[in-house]
Amino acid sequence: MIVRLTFLSFLPQNIVQAKKVFEEEIVPVVRKQRGNIDCRLLEPIEKTDDYISMTTWETKADADAYNSSGIYRQLVEKVKKDFAKDPVLKVYTTESILAHA
């Protein structure tokens, strides 16, 4: 399983709108992508921390196909005006954890 985490810092005055776009426009598109298991926006308890867009994928190939399809970039563009700084994408796997379980 692959987990893609995009760390997002929103302008304070744009948070409500960005969360609405995420839930109404981004989540439905991502969940329709081949191999997607989950998509959600994690809201920080500490308001100075970043929001995190978390997507979970069945395989690395599915996550890579999503990234290279251009859909990821199109979705980021929907909330780009709301960013306080550029988002940071990090990708993780659970394969090593499962192999040792």
Score class of each variant (00 low, 15 high):
1 M>Y: 02
2 I>G: 02
4 R>H: 04
5 L>N: 14
5 L>S: 13
5 L>I: 09
6 T>N: 07
6 T>L: 15
7 F>K: 12
8 L>R: 04
8 L>A: 08
8 L>Y: 12
10 F>T: 02
10 F>R: 00
11 L>Q: 15
11 L>W: 03
12 P>M: 10
12 P>Y: 04
13 Q>N: 11
13 Q>I: 00
13 Q>P: 04
14 N>S: 14
14 N>H: 15
14 N>Y: 13
14 N>K: 14
15 I>T: 08
15 I>E: 12
16 V>D: 15
17 Q>D: 09
17 Q>I: 06
17 Q>M: 09
18 A>W: 07
19 K>H: 06
19 K>Q: 15
21 V>M: 01
21 V>N: 01
22 F>V: 09
22 F>E: 00
23 E>M: 09
23 E>Q: 12
25 E>Q: 13
26 I>Q: 03
26 I>H: 02
27 V>R: 15
28 P>I: 05
28 P>K: 07
29 V>R: 11
29 V>T: 12
29 V>E: 09
31 R>N: 14
31 R>L: 13
32 K>L: 14
33 Q>A: 12
33 Q>H: 08
33 Q>D: 08
33 Q>K: 08
36 N>V: 12
36 N>H: 09
37 I>L: 15
37 I>G: 07
37 I>Y: 09
38 D>E: 13
39 C>T: 10
39 C>L: 01
39 C>N: 09
42 L>M: 13
42 L>C: 11
42 L>Q: 07
42 L>P: 02
42 L>T: 05
44 P>E: 03
44 P>W: 00
44 P>D: 00
45 I>L: 15
45 I>V: 15
46 E>G: 02
47 K>M: 05
48 T>L: 00
48 T>A: 05
50 D>W: 05
50 D>L: 07
50 D>K: 15
51 Y>W: 10
52 I>F: 03
53 S>V: 01
53 S>E: 13
53 S>R: 05
55 T>K: 05
55 T>L: 04
55 T>M: 06
56 T>K: 15
57 W>A: 00
58 E>A: 10
58 E>T: 07
58 E>R: 11
58 E>V: 09
59 T>P: 01
59 T>W: 01
59 T>D: 00
59 T>E: 01
60 K>Q: 14
60 K>L: 11
61 A>Q: 14
62 D>H: 14
63 A>H: 02
64 D>H: 01
64 D>I: 03
65 A>V: 01
65 A>R: 15
66 Y>I: 05
67 N>Q: 04
67 N>L: 13
69 S>K: 07
69 S>W: 10
72 Y>M: 05
73 R>Q: 10
74 Q>W: 03
74 Q>A: 08
75 L>N: 06
75 L>I: 11
76 V>G: 03
77 E>I: 01
77 E>M: 10
79 V>N: 03
79 V>Y: 00
80 K>C: 03
80 K>A: 14
81 K>N: 08
81 K>V: 12
82 D>E: 07
82 D>R: 04
82 D>C: 15
82 D>A: 11
84 A>I: 03
85 K>N: 06
86 D>F: 04
87 P>E: 09
87 P>A: 12
88 V>S: 12
88 V>M: 09
90 K>G: 01
90 K>T: 08
91 V>M: 06
91 V>W: 04
91 V>F: 01
91 V>T: 15
92 Y>P: 10
92 Y>I: 08
94 T>S: 12
95 E>P: 02
95 E>Q: 11
95 E>I: 14
96 S>V: 11
96 S>M: 10
98 L>D: 04
100 H>C: 11
100 H>T: 14
100 H>G: 14
100 H>V: 13
100 H>D: 11
